[in-house]
Design a binder for these strands. Structure first.
Lengths: 208, 208
DNA sequence: GTCAACAGGATCGTTGACAATCTGAACACT
DNA sequence: AGTGTTCAGATTGTCAACGATCCTGTTGAC
């Protein structure tokens, strides 16, 4: 029960059921998840370590608000780590993995014009997540997953930017091409250019 | 009191007061730190999120044991992140920072032949930590600090290897030279070669 | 009208006791 | 001897209540 509450609360924060700045009162959460205050406290401690929750002594917890400046730093760190992941994925990916990656890119290409940004965003997340798994680099994968969670809100705002999908599609395709070619340094470089283009958008966002 | 216990327990694990595999029973720890079981539980949850403690449901917590393979992955992730940090440090370091870095290198050079590996290891840690602070990159610095903690045990075994200090001294000097020169890509590269030499040692260690 | 002191409410932090679960050993059975 | 079973001990998970702390709105003096 204890770990379940942690997962549910994290999930509820990530999907926006709780927004940045919202207070996370122990008693109401205990009722909502049908558990005791102890389980909620445990979850809040864990999510604080993960950087998703702010906690002040005797003043309670809130959903952590990530500034644009922080989102940029998070993306910079992701760039460093996902470069490593892309390189390792290029080394370890199997033929079946190659097929799956190409299939994801194809679906992304389909969803660009037709459907809303939601499907493209889902495929985007799926691609990055599968690359993490293929890299067999558990440490880097865990850190990247955490960073992605922290900036989830900004990622979403970025995904619905007009024209953004077209731009990022080619970058994603370049990453997959390098991984399929078994080119570690090429894959890392492609990942860097992709995430640095994200940083560019965030920077312009911060100035405005 | 609650957060204090977390810090004390983490510190006790890092300095080896508890060794990998040791059980962390709630009741004895509560007596040792003169607090209630709740505070200990809270600390165990937090340290589990940090990767320092293993917890199995209803079976208690132990100090996490890091294999050589994991230590290698940790160092690879550090290489990616500290490359970023070295580059940012090269951008942001002030004249006073340059002076301090050169002073640390000088002290390292002194301690190589004369004193035991303990002083060199201390300066090594200090150098990396100061670079993290100078980079002004809080996100990367936090992640690196965590990774360093996770592999603390292996770092220590590595530090007392004969001849290791001489080899790593020149690598550290190269990093500082690039940072002082305000050369971000050079600093990142120097950091990469340094940490990849650490990975080499760990790899030979793993084979043996 | 402004500011400090104060009381009330809300919320967290801590404690102690109880329930649930796991571990290991003793024991019966084949 | 080997295997399955039962039971006691140890340890964690959960709960309810109490005390401590902080925020808010009000009161009163100046």
């Amino acid at each position: 029960m204890m770990d379940l509450v942690t997962d549910e609360l994290r999930s509820d924060i990530l999907v926006g059921r709780f927004e940045p700045g919202d207070r996370l009162l122990e008693m109401p959460l205990a009722e909502q998840y049908e558990c005791g205050r102890a389980a909620v406290r445990s979850a809040l401690v864990a999510l604080t370590s993960e950087g998703l929750v702010d906690r002040a002594a005797n003043r309670g917890a809130t959903v952590r608000r990530i500034s644009v400046a922080e989102a940029i730093q998070i993306t910079e760190a992701r760039s460093a780590l996902e470069g490593l992941i892309a390189a390792e994925a290029a080394r370890h990916a199997t033929a079946a993995d190659h097929k799956e990656l190409r299939s994801i890119i194809a679906k992304m290409r389909d969803s660009v014009g037709t459907e809303g940004a939601k499907e493209y965003s889902r495929l985007n997340g799926l691609l990055h997540r599968r690359l993490c798994e293929m890299s067999k680099h558990e440490i880097a994968a865990e850190l990247v997953a955490n960073l992605r969670n922290r900036a989830a809100h900004h990622q979403y705002r970025l995904a619905i930017m007009p024209g953004r999908a077209e731009e990022s599609l080619e970058q994603h395709a370049a990453i997959v091409t390098a991984v399929v070619a078994g080119d570690p340094t090429g894959a890392a470089k492609a990942m860097h250019t992709h995430l640095h283009s994200v940083i560019d958008v965030l920077t312009r966002w911060g100035d405005a």
